Amino acid sequence: MASNESGATQYEDLFDHKKPVKNPLVPIGALLTAGVLTAGLISFRQGNSQLGQKLMRARVVAQGATVALMFGTAYYYGDKL
């Protein structure tokens, strides 16, 4: 079976706009936020409301830091693209 060179080029062109992650801390922050949220919900479900409240506050901090990283990265790379 012969390979179609134009077909391969079209396939590669679909992914030309994809850039590597410029700030790897953003996905890490998103995973951290999701993990803290999950732990907080589990704590509430088990009846430990004090720990659940602390984890929900930690989630807000992690979420805020992630959003700040996203805005900071967008601002930094905004003129360079």
Rank of each mutant, 00 (worst) to 15 (best):
S49I: 11
F15G: 05
Q50E: 09
S3V: 05
V60W: 01
A58F: 05
A65M: 10
H17P: 02
A65I: 07
K54P: 03
Q46N: 07
A30K: 14
V21A: 06
S49M: 04
V36H: 09
S49L: 10
G7N: 02
N23S: 11
R57L: 10
Y77F: 15
G52W: 12
G64Y: 02
V36D: 02
R59N: 12
F71P: 00
K54M: 12
K80I: 15
A34G: 01
F71R: 10
N4I: 00
T73I: 09
P24V: 15
L51W: 00
S49N: 02
F71H: 10
L31W: 13
G29P: 06
G7H: 01
E5A: 03
L37P: 04
Q53T: 06
G35K: 00
L51Q: 07
L32G: 02
K22Q: 11
Q53W: 05
A8M: 07
K19F: 12
Y77C: 13
F15N: 03
T73V: 10
L31T: 06
V67M: 01
A34D: 08
T38D: 03
D79I: 15
Q50V: 13
T33L: 03
Y76E: 13
P24S: 12
A39V: 03
D79L: 15
G78F: 15
L69K: 13
S3A: 01
A65S: 03
D16F: 08
M70S: 11
G35V: 08
T66I: 14
I42E: 04
R45D: 04
L41R: 00
I42N: 06
D16R: 12
R45K: 06
L55Y: 04
K19W: 08
M70V: 14
F44S: 06
Y11G: 01
E12I: 08
G40L: 01
G29W: 05
V21P: 08
F44N: 07
D16W: 00
S3K: 04
K22H: 02
V36Y: 12
L32S: 00
G64M: 08
G29Y: 10
V61M: 11
T38Q: 01
S43Q: 08
G40T: 03
I28P: 01
K54Q: 11
L81I: 14
M1W: 02
L69E: 12
G72K: 13
V67G: 03
T33P: 02
V36N: 07
I28W: 06
M70L: 14
D79C: 15
S6F: 06
Y75V: 15
M56F: 15
S49K: 05
T66Y: 11
L14R: 11
L81R: 08
K80V: 14
A34K: 04
L14W: 09
